[in-house]
Nucleic acid binder design. Structure first.
Length: 430
DNA sequence: TCTGGGGTCCTAGGACCC
DNA sequence: TCTGGGGTCCTAGGACCC
């Protein structure tokens, strides 16, 4: 059987490239993008890396480098990034009917059927096309397994002479590429496994493929074994075209400043619950479990570290915001401690199931059909006019947890066009 | 002063049943 | 008194990903 080429196309420094694509003056400028709380760097382009800035550095630690070198700084603007992501993915789909969108900035593309055009050339063309039409530079790795194409993709980013595309299927023997890939750079091998494998003297991808299957299985479960087989050129991780519904939905944020007052936390969690419930209804799911968690800062040495959570099994699976808020509050009261400077909270909705499969409990005190209609109407209005145009009264107006986000790029055109930032949303973002 | 957010899959072990 | 053995479901925790 002939081997099927799979490409992974990945946008370079995606968020930074997006900001640059909106503003041509940023060409050749170092750019960093900050997390939701303007706390850490979550994206940076090559120019910024060359200055010695590292991803996930707290902003204050690199502030001097940034000021001294006139690095451009942006608060993350995820709706903009989603928009550009869609454009890029749509171009991929023009080049193959079989595209698996793997994350906001990368996709696997199955390329069987295009061999006569020359797979490597075809991908060079795709890359140029994306650059011309979106200003987003991408890198493409190609192989006959996902893990090998990821490996090729890494190598592309390290070596400019590939001009953005490396096809391992162009080589009879790929040992060289396996040998220059460190164990921790393999897709599917994280820090823990890296450490473990290193302790056995296994340093490169080539070392790993020579290990015995049983040994791998016992040390790294079937997941690790699949990775090894893929590195050997046997596909074991299938393409996954349709993104299934989420099995759990989380909403959590760090606060702009610490919260100690239970009323503030109540309001905060009500807001978080509201957002999580919206996402859940978006995929027509209802939750069986609700978990609340609270954290103090893990960086502040002067206070006792607190990380508590509490899970409630809901009496009936539900997607109704007001009901979820009620239980979120109950969970909060279980774990809240006085005189504790909480810095982060979150809600997790799990045990998700399709709404239509939920069964009415005969002794239910709520008229679910009626409530369901109300939340549905709220979703429609909020989608149209912006987050929180209509909202539950519990949410209050204070936004005690408000985040800092001082450096949103002025993409007013984008915002107006999509009507994504309503007045109320802006007030909570800024 | 300021330290991200949101997911997936697998396994072991306990509860419970026959 | 004996404390087997197979099966299922659930959950916590550990690993990973972007």
């Amino acid at each position: 059987m002939s081997k099927i080429p799979i490409a992974i196309a990945d946008c370079n420094s995606f968020y930074a490239s997006c900001e640059r694509s909106m503003n041509p003056n940023l060409k050749n400028k170092a750019i960093v993008v900050l997390s939701n709380n303007d706390g850490v760097i979550i994206a940076l382009n090559k120019e910024a890396k060359d200055l010695g800035i590292k991803n996930f550095s707290p902003y204050f630690q690199v502030e001097n480098i940034i000021k001294y070198n006139d690095v451009k700084v942006f608060s993350a603007n995820f709706s903009l990034y989603d928009e550009i992501s869609k454009k890029v993915m749509n171009i991929f789909k023009e080049y193959s009917p079989n595209v698996e969108v793997y994350s906001v900035d990368e996709a696997f593309i199955k390329l069987d059927g295009f061999e006569r055009l020359g797979i490597t050339n075809y991908c060079h063309k795709l890359r140029q096309d994306v650059l011309n039409r979106t200003s987003i530079p991408i890198s493409i790795g190609i192989a006959n397994t996902k893990t090998l194409s990821k490996l090729a993709n890494r190598l592309v980013k390290k070596d400019e002479s590939y001009e953005g595309v490396l096809n391992l299927m162009d080589f009879d023997n790929i040992d060289h590429f396996l040998k220059i890939t460190e164990i921790g750079d393999i897709w599917g091998i994280g820090r823990r496994y890296q450490k473990m494998l290193n302790s056995y003297g296994i340093k490169t991808a080539l070392d790993l493929i020579n290990m015995n299957d049983k040994w791998v299985r016992s040390k790294m479960t079937v997941v690790g074994l699949r990775t090894v087989q893929e590195l050997r050129g046997f596909p074991t991780i299938p393409m996954n075209y349709s993104r299934a519904n989420k099995k759990m939905i989380m909403y959590s944020r760090s606060f702009g400043h610490k919260l100690e007052n239970i009323k503030d936390l109540e309001e905060t969690l009500a807001y978080f619950t509201c957002r999580a419930a919206e996402r859940m209804r978006n995929q027509s799911s209802a939750a069986n479990y609700l978990t609340i968690y609270l954290r103090t800062s893990s960086f502040d040495k002067n206070i006792k570290r607190v990380a508590s959570d509490y899970t409630i099994k809901l009496p009936t699976p539900t997607e109704i915001t007001s009901e979820l808020i009620y239980y979120a509050r109950e969970a909060l009261y279980k774990i809240f401690k006085e005189n504790t400077p909480y810095s982060k909270a979150g809600i997790l909705l799990s045990g998700l199931m399709p709404i239509y499969e939920t069964q009415q409990n005969m002794f239910d005190v709520l008229d679910r059909t009626k409530h369901a209609k109300v939340v549905k109407a709220m979703d429609i209005i909020n989608k149209k006019f912006g987050t929180d145009t209509i909202k539950s009264a519990t949410l209050g107006v204070n936004r005690p947890w408000t985040q800092k986000q001082n450096r949103l790029s002025d993409n007013s055109l984008h915002n107006k066009e999509k009507n994504i930032y309503s007045e109320s949303t802006i007030s909570f973002l800024t």
